[in-house]
Design a protein around this nucleic acid. Structure first.
Lengths: 323, 323
DNA sequence: GTGAAAGCGCTAACAG
DNA sequence: CTGTTAGCGCTTTCAC
């Protein structure tokens, strides 16, 4: 920058102001500076700027598994939305481990990132406090609230109701393959389903809830377990689509017809849901919309909003061929 | 850091050396410093360090589409591999556009990232030169070489040969739905296939090569086009698995049986290849291995390697149900 | 409309 | 084994 100033015959302050536009610069001066910049192929040193201003152009995206298409889509859209603001997305996969979630969150604060978007998996409400205290913009994408923190959360009432309506017409015993017991916020999808099921004159007894990680293997194991129950369910809800695909694997292996013998309903509508055969019926939670909402909340914070806000993203019942 | 130094009764240089371990520090001094650090909850300012040392802890991963499971897996593994070295991955999706690829590459250089890993889609060999000139570690993952630059590239000879052997037993007219004509490096997968086909006494005439983006829609359109040819092919290779799935969509729509009437072979073995029905036969290019190779090349550069290097990652013929 | 200069927080000579 | 000090390249008062 000093070089440019010298070449243009001005001070480095003027160069800085030409670049930032934060104070008027005479047309002639500006032209000279711009010429010098072009001549010398000058580009600002972002690190120096960040040090001086205390800012950063990085946003951390912390998710359980970036290889899961749902989160990959979230990352893609978030990146696209933030790009225009000069913000970059640093992806962090935690493999659903609490220690990694904590470490990554701490690192984001320590590195003074511009903000964090996180889908917690095993974090407890208290684990976020220090981020909020640090003043760093933080957006949580989760089923439940974590206190006075910006939140993007599904509104699945209508969608889940529709799913149950559809199922209630032909099925009697519903079951669920849920996430692990120690997952963040318990399992609201389960609670929600149970509450609604009662309204439809069906129950979701504890014996028909099995738990596991959000993996294909866990889905297969869960399905096998459910099929060995005395009261074999005829409709199985899954915590997400990965689990549902695992369940389909096992159904195929056991020669159980889906949806003939058992209906199957996933959650999320990950990209592969319409690829498996039979195509998976699911409660769609649109990753792109979630990302856009998160980007919005983040930028509002960056622009100075002080109070926390919650955005509801509408889920939708997508009926395909497994119900 | 000055605060810590004061609290511990030492100079800030000593605090720095305690943190970095770059010169010996007396045990007592170290203890005092560490106590002060804990007391004050001090963490180094990474930005200041980076400015001073001219280093950075960011690696850009530039890919056509991070929502494509193949690239999502690449990102996941790369992130995991680099994590231990204190490096973070910034993901950049270019939507297969050359201008975005160029812009992102330029930005990585300008921001003085620690390195770049890129899967180019429309970049030309010359587009990389300025990165290499800047001295920034650069790893290209592509089918063809771009000059004296670190490269991770598939070794698909055996796999493609096996695929053709398998196909040659029952099919006569092979076709390909390839990527766009202006894609980086032409289309080596196509050239390669054509060359090998001759060896098996089959040909891959120009009329049986259609082109399009790496999307499901393009795959469907390409398949439709091939099916309308006078010499209708009975085996279709696809540039990647996304295209192949699009082809399956169209086959289903047209009532064409796969593999009964037409065999279908993809490329990559993206996670959904084993999810579609019938399960997709494909030439697997293991994303995780590619990421590990790229991470290795990058760290070697960071440690001072000066000459460029090429790593071949072995592709593998995965026979499932579409052939 | 422009310039001089302080200083963001750290590291790495250099000097003891 | 430890301290002093000069910057890294930028932004932003303050002064003109």
């Amino acid at each position: 920058m000093a070089d440019v100033a010298r070449a243009a015959g001005v001070s480095s302050a003027t160069v800085s102001y030409v670049l930032s536009g934060k104070r008027p610069v005479a047309a002639a001066t500006r032209a000279a500076v711009e010429a010098a910049i072009a001549e010398l192929h000058f580009t600002v040193n972002v690190t120096a700027r960040n040090l001086r201003t205390g800012s950063s152009s990085l946003v951390a995206l912390i998710v359980p598994d970036i290889a899961n298409p749902f989160f990959a889509q979230l990352a893609a859209t978030l990146q696209e939305e933030l790009r225009g603001l000069g913000l970059h997305v640093v992806v962090c996969s935690t493999r659903a481990r609490r220690d990694e979630e904590q470490a990554l969150l701490a690192e984001a604060v320590q590195q003074r990132f511009a903000g964090v978007v996180i889908t917690p998996f095993r974090l407890k409400p208290g684990d976020f406090q220090f981020v909020a205290d640090s003043g760093m913009p933080l957006v949580v994408s989760a089923d439940v609230s974590f206190g006075p923190i910006d939140l993007v959360t599904p509104d699945a009432r209508v969608a889940t109701r529709r799913a149950l309506e559809r199922v209630a017409a032909q099925r009697r015993r519903i079951a669920m393959i849920a996430g692990p017991r120690d997952a963040t916020g318990g399992d609201p999808r389960l609670e929600h389903l149970r509450a609604l099921a009662l309204q439809f004159g069906m129950s979701l007894p504890h014996e028909l809830v099995v738990r596991g990680e959000h993996t294909r293997e866990a889905g297969a194991a869960g399905f096998r377990e459910l099929m060995s129950r005395r009261y074999r369910p005829d409709a199985v809800f899954c915590g997400n689509d990965v689990i549902a695909v695992g369940a389909m694997d096992k159904a195929h292996e056991l020669g159980i017809d889906i949806p003939g013998e058992v209906a199957l309903i996933g959650h999320d509508d990950a990209s592969f849901a319409s690829l498996v055969r039979p195509q998976l019926t699911t409660i769609r939670y649109p990753a792109a919309d979630v990302a856009r909402a998160a980007a919005r909340l983040l930028t509002e914070r960056l622009e100075g909003r002080k109070v926390h806000k919650t955005v509801h993203v509408k889920a939708e019942f997508v009926e395909r061929a497994t119900v």
